[in-house]
């Protein structure tokens, strides 16, 4: 930990994530084509098409670059939803304690035990696949571990001198929670947030693979699914299905590394 109380973030994680963010924000810098432009189908990689073309002639490299923003958005958006719900529930539970705590935690425990992926599959199968529905479902099913961690930290913070002072002086619970407790929660919430992002990205890829994704938005997962169903696999077009998969792995690794470094920042002594 350096002086200002910021964790020393993992270099590689940041660099990787930065690269992906660039791909997401300024895709035209990396590729001169449009992802929907059509050329000759099933072409092998060449100097004109770095990763060849798919079954309807789109340039795969371009698809890859443009897919970044979708996969990252799904990841971060779900994590934001999950974090928001987790914060609200964890804070309320930890601050008010007593019966409120018992009920909320009981509820959280039950939700924790329900296996998510089967539930997501069945929900996604009934609902028409759409990217925002996917994000919503993923977010709403991942808040429990955040809630638990927020609650236990809130219980701790609640007993510190400054929070007790604040209660004593008559600040409203809302003020105390937002101004005193939440800023001191970042250390525990940040790694969980990153974890949630990573999990959401993997889940989205898996769901897209079995056809429950949103085919109109070409995320990396959808690319792999198309490769599988439109003959890319049989034709051994590894340049179609490997790159998106590798991208997913790399993106998740970068997020995981950053998440771990938030955790490490908390520990005082570390002899590696």
């Amino acid at each position: 930990m350096n002086k200002k109380g910021l964790p020393s973030l993992n270099r590689y994680g940041i660099i990787l994530l930065f690269v992906f963010l660039c791909m997401a924000l300024i895709p035209s810098f990396f590729s001169q084509y449009d992802p929907d432009e059509r050329f000759m189908a099933y072409e092998d990689p060449s100097s004109k098409h770095l990763l060849g073309t798919n079954d309807i002639g789109n340039d795969i490299f371009t698809e890859l670059i443009y897919g970044t923003r979708i996969s990252l958005t799904v990841g971060f958006a779900s994590a934001i939803i999950a974090t928001f719900i987790g914060l609200v529930i964890g804070l309320t539970s930890g601050y008010y304690r007593g019966n409120v705590d018992e009920i909320l935690m009981g509820f959280t425990d039950v939700v924790l035990m329900i296996p998510k992926i089967p539930l997501i599959i069945i929900l996604a199968a009934f609902l028409r696949p759409g990217i925002w529905i996917l994000i919503l479902v993923l977010g709403v099913l991942s808040w429990e571990s955040i809630a638990r961690v927020v609650r236990s930290k809130t219980l701790q913070i609640r007993e510190t001198g400054f929070v007790m002072s604040a209660r004593c002086m008559g600040f409203s619970p809302f003020h105390i929670m937002s101004s005193d407790i939440i800023p001191n929660l970042t250390h525990v919430v940040a790694p969980k947030f990153m974890l949630a992002t990573a999990a959401a990205m993997i889940s989205e890829a898996s769901l897209s693979f079995i056809g429950l994704g949103d085919p109109s938005v070409k995320s990396w997962g959808v690319m792999i699914s198309f490769a599988f169903t439109k003959g890319g696999f049989i034709r051994e077009m590894w340049w179609w299905y490997l790159p998106p998969g590798i991208c997913i792995t790399l993106a998740v690794i970068s997020i995981a590394l950053i998440g771990f470094s938030f955790e490490k920042g908390k520990q005082t002594v570390k002899i590696e």
């Binding site: 990573a198 993997i202 890829a205 898996s206 693979f209 997962g221 792999i224 599988f228 696999f233 299905y241 490997l242 998969g245 997913i248 792995t249 998740v252 690794i253 995981a256």
Partner: peptide, 14 residues
């Protein structure tokens, strides 16, 4: 780390 960050089906595909 790499393995645990890969979607399981992708590993299977490879």
């Amino acid at each position: 780390m790499a393995v645990s960050c890969t979607p399981p089906y992708f590993l299977a595909l490879i």
